[in-house]
Design a protein around this nucleic acid. Structure first.
Lengths: 188, 188
DNA sequence: GAAATACGGTACCGATCGATACCTTCATTA
DNA sequence: TAATGAAGGTATCGATCGGTACCGTATTTC
């Protein structure tokens, strides 16, 4: 396959970057893990930074699909976002959010990697907005931003607690936030 | 002064690590910025990792003192934590939370750097617990954990928004969280 | 005044970094 | 069957990495 090497590189990068950090992983490790030759690497990517961008995009796509599937399987209630997160936090391989980690490591906010990470976050916000809108929340746009803040806060908290509790805390906050409002209309 | 070189190294490391990331900063840069000789570096620190731990501890101490001063100057209401954060988010040099960034870069949760970062977070939680207790919240311990989650969520959000709005959002959530409860007793 | 100590500067170490060049192999396609 | 192109493997590049050794100097301490 023509793009087989490329896919293997992105897959290897997703695993290694997430587990050990971007700068901590050298090109040699990526080649060993993926079985791709050195020349093939630079045939598909102009630089390691290019691979970083491709990797965060691939991660974002998979992550958003995972979330949508989990929420759909739970009935579509916006609060079930945090139930899905709880499962993820419990995994031993959990290392936070790859997009957040990328924004931290790619310090320059104008770098392509940083941009790709923020684009993923915006896509998640758009998805949450749709969930809240379907649930009948009038100010769904503002609430989506706040839910994203809770998701990110829970993710960072889980980095140090390493269990599901951060998701439970975030869900409890979200329950108060969504129920205390009088902007609810009939679900459509 | 005996520890002058050490203090200068920590100060330089705080600035450089925060601005560019830990792995992105080499020992040479630290020596240039601090004016410390190479040998003196390794006389005070066994390794660069040792400096990382000392740096996060120094950052944590300064940050908690800053927060306590800002909140005290605003009257001690727990919600003013987010007003203080808003000022910080607005600065052009804002690059998130050094402790979070350290946990992200020091992937190994058992590493001394990761530990030092979690210790800082726990100290902040303890401080918030005191604020909430003084404000008369019965379940101040659980609320302190949730406020910390909101602070961290706002910090990560500010990384991509680069303005005060994340602090405003977090404060709005905290207002609902603290006011919707019936566990309030007379402030002592 | 002599010994001790902390300091900055420099040379250097092996290892690794990201990246380029060149090679052979293999599958596809004209 | 000959040609084309993408693949993996390896050698190598200059630069930089964290870390060690040694030097001369300035300040302190007895």
């Amino acid at each position: 396959m023509a793009t087989d090497a490329r896919n293997r590189l992105v897959a290897a990068a997703e695993g290694l970057f997430y587990a050990e950090g971007i700068r901590a992983v050298g090109v040699d490790q990526l080649l060993n893990r993926s079985g791709v030759g050195r020349a093939s690497f630079y045939r598909h990517f102009a630089s390691k930074d290019d691979l970083v961008v491709a990797t965060i995009r691939s991660y974002g796509t998979r992550w958003r699909r995972w979330l949508a599937d989990e929420v759909a399987a739970r009935g579509g209630d916006p609060l079930t976002v945090f139930d899905a997160l709880a499962d993820r936090f419990a995994g031993t391989e959990f290392r936070g959010c790859a997009a957040i980690n990328t924004m931290v490591e790619a310090a320059d906010p104008d770098s392509p990697a940083h941009w790709a990470a923020t684009e993923h976050k915006q896509s998640v916000i758009d998805y949450l907005d749709g969930l809240l809108s379907a649930a009948g929340h009038r100010d769904h746009a503002a609430l989506a931003e706040k839910l994203m803040l809770l998701v990110d806060g829970a993710t960072v908290t889980a980095l140090r607690r390493r269990d599901r509790s951060a998701a439970h805390d975030a869900r409890a906050i979200a329950e108060v936030l969504l129920s205390a409002r009088s902007d609810r209309q009939e679900p459509r």
